[in-house]
């Protein structure tokens, strides 16, 4: 498989802080690489190096075989970047923002306008295109930002936490946009703090911590490592908590935890565990107000991989 981008042994220090301690990332053409990690793990630094904004202190990175340091100009013609915060100009209209990018990418004015109109329509911003971006809602801004990184039809796009701060409906919009990009053959590097997001979009996931890759694999592989999924139960009658706990323990073969008052949760490996639990609860007549099967959270992934919680991470 041809690699769309690759990074080998990237090291970056800021003063005494080591942001990247030798990181390897790679994605095949037309795939999505999810980079999963807590705040401060080095996700943004890695993206900034791959996007030619920063030079690594050691290691190398290339986009379609072109070195990001030696031949930054050529790399910049192949990439699109969307940062954590919307990188659009608030005083400019949606249209003006996109036309400016087009002009900077050497399109002639007519083409730049045509491309901008096309993207605004695609991203549901045709109406809003003539208004300054500062009048846009958070979701609209994020869409404009995504559109801006697509003006040049890049081969590779970097999305640095593209859904942070968006409500679930807006987040789904962004997810659909990312899916359609991949259909068009674009390679995506997606950084996120949510395993759910990486699971929904990525072909491969690299989990990073302290500037190092601590796990890499497909979402399925990764979920296997961290104990598949978690069943969560909240009995209607708190008095039945002990009975419910016994059922979960029996089905999973693990000791359930209580993440919140009146709630019990346990990781399960077996795909049929959930239906078994439902059947047993029903037979014993235990009513539930909450019953769910969910993916482990980033914190749980982290705890399994490192024995530490991400919260301690940020406090340190």
């Amino acid at each position: 498989m041809n690699l769309a981008f690759e990074a080998e042994g990237l090291v970056k220090r800021f003063g005494k802080t080591t942001a990247l301690a030798g990181i390897d990332l790679a994605a095949g053409q037309g795939t999505v690489l999810g980079v999963l990690g807590p705040n401060g793990a080095g996700k943004t630094t890695a993206v900034r190096i791959l996007a030619t904004l920063l030079r690594p202190d050691a290691g190398r990175a290339a986009v379609r075989g072109v070195d990001v340091v030696k031949d930054a100009g050529r790399v910049r013609r192949m990439i699109g970047l969307t940062g954590q915060y919307a990188s659009v100009d608030e005083d400019l209209t949606g249209m003006e923002n996109l036309v400016l990018i087009g002009m900077l990418l050497d399109l002639c004015r007519v083409d730049a306008k045509a491309r901008a109109a096309e993207l605004l329509k695609e991203f549901g911003l045709a109406e809003a295109g003539s208004r300054p971006a500062k009048t846009y809602s958070g979701g609209m801004r994020r869409r404009l930002d995504l559109a801006a990184s697509l003006v040049g039809r890049p081969d590779v796009i970097y999305l640095d936490e593209p859904t942070t701060g968006l409500d679930p409906a807006k987040r789904d919009d962004v997810w659909n946009i990312i899916r359609s990009l991949v259909t068009d053959g674009v390679t995506v590097l997606l950084t996120t703090q949510y395993l759910e997001e990486a699971d929904a979009l990525a072909d491969d996931i690299s989990v990073i911590d302290h500037g190092k890759v601590i796990a890499h694999g497909s979402p399925a592989e990764l979920k296997q490592v961290v104990g598949g999924q978690t069943i969560l139960v909240r009995p209607t009658d708190p008095a039945r908590l002990a009975d419910a706990t016994a059922i979960l323990a029996a089905v999973s073969g693990r000791e359930p935890e209580s993440p919140a008052r009146g709630v019990i949760a346990v990781p399960v490996d077996d795909d049929t565990a959930f239906t078994t639990v439902v059947g047993r609860l029903d037979r014993e007549g235990i009513g539930v107000t909450e019953l769910s099967l969910r993916l482990p959270s980033l914190d749980e992934v982290f705890f399994t991989l490192t024995g530490r919680h991400t919260v301690e991470e940020t406090a340190a």
């Binding site: 900034r48 996007a51 030619t52 904004l53 100009g73 050529r74 910049r76 013609r77 990439i79 699109g80 970047l81 940062g83 954590q84 915060y85 919307a86 990188s87 659009v88 100009d89 990018i101 900077l104 990418l105 050497d106 930002d145 801006a148 990184s149």
Partner: peptide
């Protein structure tokens, strides 16, 4: 300090532009 300058930096234009 705004994100838009990050975008300028990621575009194939002269640094001084």
């Amino acid at each position: 300090g705004k994100g838009v300058f990050d975008r300028f930096r990621s575009l194939p234009i002269a640094r001084s532009a």
